[in-house]
Simulated scan of single mutants.
Amino acid sequence: MLQTSRTVTPDDPRLDQARRFVRQLEESLASTPRHLPVDGLDRIGGDDQTGTVTCVVDARGDFVDLRVRSDWWYTLGPSGVASAILDALQYAQDKAMLAMAVLRRHGRTLPAPPTGDRFQHDEFAARPGDIWAEWGAAEARVQRGYDTMAAADRVVETRDSAEPRTISGPRGLFHLTLVGFTVASAEVNPRIAARDADAIADDARATLRQATREKDPTYWFSGLFRDATTRVDEFGNAEQVR
C-alpha cells in the first residue's frame, strides 16, 4: 500500500459514511460462512470531501481504480483536483484499514497479498529420469533465488531513499511525487480544461497503479524501472524520463 497521510478527523463529513461501511461489513460477515470470502473487499471506494473524485482500493489499501466526475471544474477547479485525488485515495485506504480491523475482530482470515510471481512456472521442469533436465531445474531455482534477493534489495533501497521521485501519466496531465513509497504531493498540468475529466482520471489511474506496482518485488524482475523519474505509457509500462 502506498503510504499516505490519514485524513478522517472527528469533524470530517465522511464519518457517517465510514460508520455505515463498517455496519454493512458487520452484516456481511454475519451472513457469510467463515470459509467463504466476504463480498466487496476487493473494491473499497472512497470519495474526496466534495464527492467529486472516487478512488477504489482493495482490502490491503492498494490502488485499484479511480473516477473523476464530469463537473470537477466547478466543484474543484484545476487547482484542487490533484489534492482531491489524494484525498479520495487516503479516505479509501482509511476504510480499508477499518475493514481489516473488523476482520481481525471477528477472527476472519485477512486477504493475502497478491503474489504476481512471474517465475512460478519453471521452464526447466524436469521429466522423470531426465538428469540434465533436473540439473537445469536446480540451476534455475538457484538463479531465481538470487533474482529474488536482488529484487528485494531494490525495493528496500527505494523505500529507504530520501530522494523524491516523480511518476507521470502517459498524457503528462497528472504527476505524483514520492519519497520512498510515501506520497509527498500530486499536481496536474496547468493547461487542463473542463472537458478533461476522463483524461485526468486515466492519467492518475496509470500513475497510481505504477506507484503501487513498484512496491511489489516481482515488478523489479521486469527491468522496467530504470530511474528515479518515471513516466507510464498508455499500456501501463514505465519509461525513463530525462
Score class of each variant (00 low, 15 high):
A184Y: 03
S161P: 04
V155W: 12
A206H: 15
E187V: 07
A206S: 13
S185C: 10
F174D: 06
A201G: 15
V155G: 12
N189K: 08
P190T: 10
F174Y: 15
L178V: 05
T182M: 13
A197D: 14
V188D: 01
G172Q: 00
P164Y: 01
N189G: 09
R191I: 01
P164W: 06
N189V: 05
P190E: 10
N189C: 10
D198L: 13
A199Q: 12
A197S: 14
S185F: 09
D160Y: 02
N189P: 11
A162E: 10
P190C: 09
D196N: 03
V188I: 13
L176K: 04
G145R: 13
S185H: 11
A152D: 13
F181S: 04
D153Q: 14
A199S: 13
A201D: 11
F181P: 01
N189S: 14
T166K: 04
R205V: 10
H175E: 00
A194M: 02
D202N: 12
A194S: 14
R171K: 05
L178W: 02
L176E: 07
D153H: 05
R191P: 01
A152M: 10
R159K: 03
I200H: 03
I200A: 00
L173H: 10
S185M: 09
I167Q: 05
L178P: 02
D203Q: 08
G180H: 09
R144L: 09
V183K: 07
D203G: 05
A197M: 04
T148F: 05
R159A: 09
A193R: 15
T148D: 09
L173K: 01
D198E: 15
R171G: 15
L173N: 01
V156M: 04
L173Y: 03
R144F: 06
A151M: 06
R154M: 12
E163M: 06
V188C: 14
P170D: 08
A152Q: 15
A204T: 11
D196F: 02
T158W: 12
R165H: 15
V179P: 02
T177D: 01
R195S: 12
Y146C: 04
H175K: 07
M149E: 11
